[in-house]
Nucleic acid binder design. Structure first.
Length: 290
DNA sequence: TTATGATGGAAAA
DNA sequence: TTTCCCTCATAAA
């Protein structure tokens, strides 16, 4: 379940549990065995994240670069509960706890210089204090592609994935298909600030929760599938269901190869080119449901 | 038992 | 733009 918040949470947990310690490192599946032979028994210094890239830094300038992709998982378990070794790409362990990596898009041993090159290629990450949103604004302001496409571009908004894209466009009443160069500076700024705030909260929980309390449905009307993506959302995977704000059915379309969800009434065509109307702190464009 | 889909991205076409 | 990769819970048969 990997958008940026999950990767940053993993980096913190790896640092907390193993930082500064000598660890056992293995690749029971064998596909990363060349690297784990080098790393086994060495000190794991710390871990950090940029966008969806996870870096685990070992002594002697050894860095493991992990990208979970769509289906990769990295979990902590008591050593005694670890099984299914045939798909276990990487296991980092002390005497009690194991961190197990399965199905990553990639997992490579790189040098600190190669790590810097990955970071340089990445766009600013709303989760990082050193992020420079101006870099993202310049790309947005000059792009002919839609804002929905730019939000998924890791060279523009690092760490944002399909859920945050759908949710932040909804929260700001922006038409997903608005050409990015038509997005106003004001709306860009509020989107960036909102991403930074939402993602920071979500790093702590590991879930994506985007629904403000005033729109949260009663317990008995909650979508039972929220556990699948962990958290309560306005539009993601809610195609055909009523918009939590206006009641209109949420739309779904395969757009540039990914599922795009939006509310046609809260995010009307061409919306986002003008600063949103500020009525009493509300961010949406739409009249509340009767 | 087999098929499907998913929070992603690179490579091929 | 399509194909492919890697995993696994869930759905369909």
């Amino acid at each position: 379940m990997p958008e940026g918040h999950v990767i940053h949470k993993l980096a913190r947990e790896l640092t907390d549990k193993f930082g500064g310690k000598q660890v056992r490192v293995s690749s029971p599946q064998g596909r990363f065995a060349d690297a784990t032979a080098i790393l086994d028994g060495t000190v794991l210094e710390d871990a950090d994240a940029v966008g969806k890239h996870l870096f685990i830094n070992f002594e002697a300038r050894q860095c493991v670069w992990i990208h979970l992709g769509l289906i990769g998982k990295f979990r902590f378990k008591p050593l005694s509960q670890i099984e299914n070794y045939d798909t276990l790409r990487l296991l980092i362990a002390d005497s009690k706890i194991g961190a197990e990596l399965r199905g990553p898009q990639w997992c490579r041993l790189i040098t600190p210089e190669e790590k810097l090159a990955v970071i340089a290629k990445s766009g600013p990450d709303p989760l990082r204090d050193d992020a420079d949103p101006e870099r993202a604004w310049k790309k947005v302001h000059n792009a002919k592609r839609t804002i929905a496409q730019l939000l998924m571009d890791q060279g523009v908004f690092a760490g944002v994935g399909n859920i945050y894209r759908a949710e932040v466009l909804f929260r700001h009443g922006v038409d997903p298909k608005l050409p990015a160069n038509k997005l106003s500076r004001e709306v860009f700024d509020s989107i960036w600030a909102d991403l930074a705030a939402l993602m920071r909260a979500d790093v702590l929980t590991g879930q994506i929760d985007t629904v403000d309390p005033e729109h949260s449905p009663e317990e008995q009307h909650r979508d039972p599938r929220v556990d699948e993506h962990g958290g309560e959302v306005y539009v993601y995977r809610r195609a055909g269901q009523e918009c939590l704000v206006c009641g209109e059915p949420i739309q779904l379309e395969l757009f540039a190869g990914r599922n795009l969800y939006w509310c046609p009434k809260c995010q009307p065509q061409a919306s986002g080119g003008e600063p949103r109307a500020k009525h009493g702190g509300a961010w949406h464009n739409c009249a509340p449901k009767a």
